[in-house]
Design a protein around this nucleic acid. Structure first.
Lengths: 346, 346
DNA sequence: TGCTAGCACTGTTATGATGCGAGTGCTAGA
DNA sequence: TCTAGCACTCGCATCATAACAGTGCTAGCA
């Protein structure tokens, strides 16, 4: 009587599920019962393994493409697999030293650094990597410059605390003196204020200008509008890697990626939803907010400027990816970026 | 004795070639001898048509995928077809009025206008559209602004005559007074000078600073470097259209397009080669400078700021495209952009 | 009761035979 | 010099077949 405790039964299930997923990630082909016995020292007969698999399928963790095929994980299966990766395991990252050096170069343009970061993410993962620029709305204003570019036009240049530079033209007919006055006003009142609060702040301070300085008031209003409508950038690299993955012979599943490269705003919208929470965020297939990503997995995490989370970065790849490794990688790269911002302070 | 003059023989050949290409462009399937008789009032027997086709094949204008298939054009065939489109035929452009209005909005940021132009090109052609920003190197400097963004850092903002704005940071420790002096110097000496000539111009004028103003001299040198290394932007839209064309079931042929979206510099390099010459430039398949574009055709033309050609725009699509229509479309859009620059002057 | 051995079953994949259709190339004749 | 006619070739779809992988089920064993 080989009575086996419930505990062991559950353990066995987990082991089989883990082995199936692990093997499927490696090989990309449905996993049969015998492989597990041969390669994952499951000490059971094929028939018994099949029973366990059938149970797991009943519970929604596995499925199989057709009767006589092995099992493949469902999104729920992957999810439980990922949830069981208790602690972040560390891996050797190829060229880590070289990469770290990239981040240690002082006075690098933030834009090129972020774009390079997306390239690093893509290069290390061999999937697509992306970085959202520090959210301008919650960034603090460091400097505002006004440049007259023609009689009726003014160029506004905004520098934020995170180092992002944005510029935009507005129509405004102001004299040199008025421009200087406006520049002083803006820098005085807005330095250290977050972009999102510009309007509020301006309204409360605007009484400084008299009624007859109508032109300046108009310009202030336009500038306030500009600040309200600033678009953040996003850097994506390596979509090509994903598109040419053998997993996707038809490219319906990766359509979304090609589109993101053309319509980054949509991508920003989606990724912004992962802005909450700390730690590594994993969205598997249908867990993603939009249906177009249902055949892909997205791993994100935030990066910080000091204590404040300012942006999101991550990778996009097939559901069949080495989650452990990829999660570590995303976390590692975000740390490097955090350190960059910390060093920038000095 | 139905003697036919050589002239007529040649005419017939041209007619057959034209009909084959026209039909292939429409249907995308190899063209057989009878279709031409039925649909292109070629008054010959199938056998005679076949003879002509065989000759055309011998001369390299046509080919056929296998013995029992109809003919398809070679690149040389397309080329001769395009060369015979003597004059630009005009077509109705959907929504032309609405598009024209886009260009008439004054004070639009040049960046967004160019990006919109690439979208227009792609929308009208249903292929990929692109626009190279006005070449900064040959653009004239209109304004240079210097903004101190921290103790050791200076932001340089460049506005060119075409309306392009570029900014870049450099390291420089200068006092307020020195910055003002430098700003005046740069604007005085460089206004109206092309970016490419900045270095030369600066060298000849730099004696204005004395030896002890070493910091300024250093900054000038760095600024000169910056100007030398400015990267132009390129706007691409609609790669997705081309990728999902039924012509390409395997996406080897369109790999390059996906890559261009990630590595725009390479694209700029290629397109810049079409900068010469006026008129509409058509590169068919292997005529393209790089092998990756061998299954695509590229139609480009320059656009002008006043009398000076400043940039290139165009479309990329399959070799099997309606060249007449596409050429007209590219030419039309470039004209609108020309007009935009003309209006900007006022 | 839980596991195992054995076996029938099912769906996939590769292969080859077959026939049809499209369109050619060639030849004889007007 | 053109045309009618015909044999020929190739591609493609359909079908049957067989090999194969891996399952689900059942009977029997500890």
């Amino acid at each position: 009587m080989r009575q086996i405790s419930l505990e062991t039964l559950k353990e066995r299930k987990t082991k089989v599920l883990g082995a199936v997923i692990h093997h499927y990630i490696k090989k990309g082909k449905p996993v049969g019962s015998t492989v597990l016995i041969d390669e994952y020292n499951v000490s059971l007969s094929p028939a018994a393994v099949r029973n366990v698999m059938a149970e797991l399928e009943g519970e929604g963790f596995l499925t199989h493409p057709h009767t006589s095929a092995g099992r493949i994980p469902t999104d729920k299966g992957y999810r439980s697999y990922v949830d069981n990766l208790l602690k972040l395991q560390s891996f050797a990252i190829e060229g880590e030293e070289r990469i770290r050096k990239e981040y240690e170069q002082k006075h690098k343009e933030i834009e090129s650094l972020l774009s390079e970061t997306s390239r690093i993410l893509s290069g290390l993962s061999q999937y697509a990597g992306f970085v959202m620029a520090p959210q301008t709305q919650y960034d603090e204003i460091k400097n505002i410059e006004l440049v007259q570019i023609s009689n009726g036009e003014l160029l506004i240049v905004l520098l934020t605390q995170s180092g992002v530079i944005k510029h935009k033209r507005i129509e405004a007919s102001l004299s040199k003196g008025e421009i200087a006055k406006l520049r002083n006003f803006l820098n005085d009142k807005l330095r250290g204020v977050s972009v999102a609060q510009v309007n509020k702040k301006i309204v409360s301070e605007i009484k400084e200008f008299k009624q007859r300085e109508e032109d300046i008031l108009k310009a202030v209003e336009k500038i306030s509008d500009v600040f309200y409508n600033i678009q953040d950038d996003i850097y994506i690299d390596g979509t090509f890697n994903v598109v040419s993955l053998p997993d996707f012979n038809d490219f319906e599943p990766v359509k979304s990626l090609i589109k993101f490269n053309e319509n980054k705003n949509k991508f920003i919208e989606i990724i912004s939803k992962d802005f909450t929470g700390s730690g590594i965020n994993v969205k598997i297939g249908s867990e993603n907010a939009i249906a177009e990503l249902k055949d892909l997995s997205v791993i994100t995490t935030v990066y910080r400027n000091g204590s404040r989370a300012v942006g999101v970065l991550g990778i996009i790849g097939p559901k069949r990816m080495e989650y452990k490794k990829m999660m570590y990688l995303v976390s590692r790269v975000s740390e490097m970026l955090n350190k960059f911002f910390k060093d920038m302070e000095k």
